[in-house]
């Protein structure tokens, strides 16, 4: 069992949890993820690591209530325990040897981006960041990120905070200004990562995206997380989750993400009826 030592509401439906998990904490690196199971009949779901402390043995996860499992997770409180919590899984992000990086985070994707920004900053890399959300109240980790980057740009879809528009609008402007980045790192909804990758391809800026497909074991066993990259089948859990955004087949990834939509809606409705 893995005890929750802190729980915090970051935005409507978006939660931060600090979880005691020594095996994960002592090896975690930016870009890696964990798989958890809330209770005995529960599903295994992957969540990217948002922060960790090797000495104290905790790992932070940040998640949005989007389905049954994240809903059940959100019902746990400080002092409660998560049944299963395994990791770190996936390959760490390759962040060394970079001079100037642009990090782009959308929605709850800002959470897994944060440890990467922090790592780059601590290595002395020049980091600009664009973060975006639907509206002001859904924007997360603004202060944390502001303290570990050079320039922070904020967008909201409805213009309630920062610039009205999408992260991709700012991206385009920055590139048009002639700023030379040796890498763009984008984490967020598939459609956002797709749009960002399409833009950076035009400007020839190497771009890494973090894929978060459906998976069961997270160790290469099920093959459910397969992603087509440059025409080849790769497993997000062991070959990724980071891939070259210019080579990922995003349309296939979006389609695969919808595989269990019917089942998910069905089970959520049932649970609502039972008042869970």
């Amino acid at each position: 069992m893995y005890r929750i030592i802190r729980k915090e509401k970051l935005a409507p439906g978006i939660w931060l949890m600090k979880v005691m998990a020594t095996f994960v904490a002592r090896k975690a690196m930016p870009g890696q993820f964990i798989i958890l199971r809330v209770k005995e009949e529960g599903e295994r779901i992957p969540l990217t690591i948002a922060d960790y402390d090797r000495r104290e043995g905790w790992v932070t996860i940040i998640f949005q209530e989007v389905g049954l499992t994240t809903g059940l997770l959100a019902k746990l409180d400080e002092g409660d325990s998560i049944l299963d919590f395994v990791g770190p899984l996936g390959r760490p992000s390759e962040l060394d040897g970079l001079k100037r990086v642009l990090c782009i985070g959308g929605g709850v994707g800002v959470a897994p981006l944060y440890p990467q920004i922090k790592y780059l900053w601590e290595k002395g890399t020049s980091v600009d960041v664009i973060i975006g959300s639907r509206s002001k109240e859904y924007l997360i980790l603004e202060d944390e990120i502001r303290s570990v980057c050079h320039n922070l740009y904020i967008t909201t879809d409805d213009g309630s905070y920062g610039r009205k528009g999408f992260v991709s609008d700012v991206l385009k402007e920055l590139l048009d200004q002639g700023i030379v980045y040796d890498r763009v790192i984008a984490i967020g909804p598939l459609i956002m990562m797709k749009v960002v990758s399409e833009i950076t391809k035009q400007y020839n800026v190497p771009t890494i995206v973090s894929m978060n497909p459906i998976m069961v074991d997270g160790t290469g066993m099920c093959g459910g997380c397969r992603v087509t990259v440059s025409g080849e089948v790769r497993y997000a859990c062991v070959d990724g989750p980071d891939f070259d955004g210019h080579l990922v087949d995003f349309d296939e990834a979006m389609r695969r993400q919808r595989m269990y939509r019917e089942e998910e809606q069905h089970i959520c409705k049932l649970m609502e009826k039972e008042g869970l």
Partner: peptide
């Protein structure tokens, strides 16, 4: 990679380990 294609490993793991045959009592679809 079409939806509806499984490795036997994934298909059987969902059923055996995750008890997907008992969906929705078991949450794995």
């Amino acid at each position: 990679n079409l939806n509806g294609v499984y490795s036997a490993n994934e298909f059987l793991t969902r059923i055996n380990l995750m008890k997907a045959y008992d969906f929705p009592n078991s949450h794995t679809p």
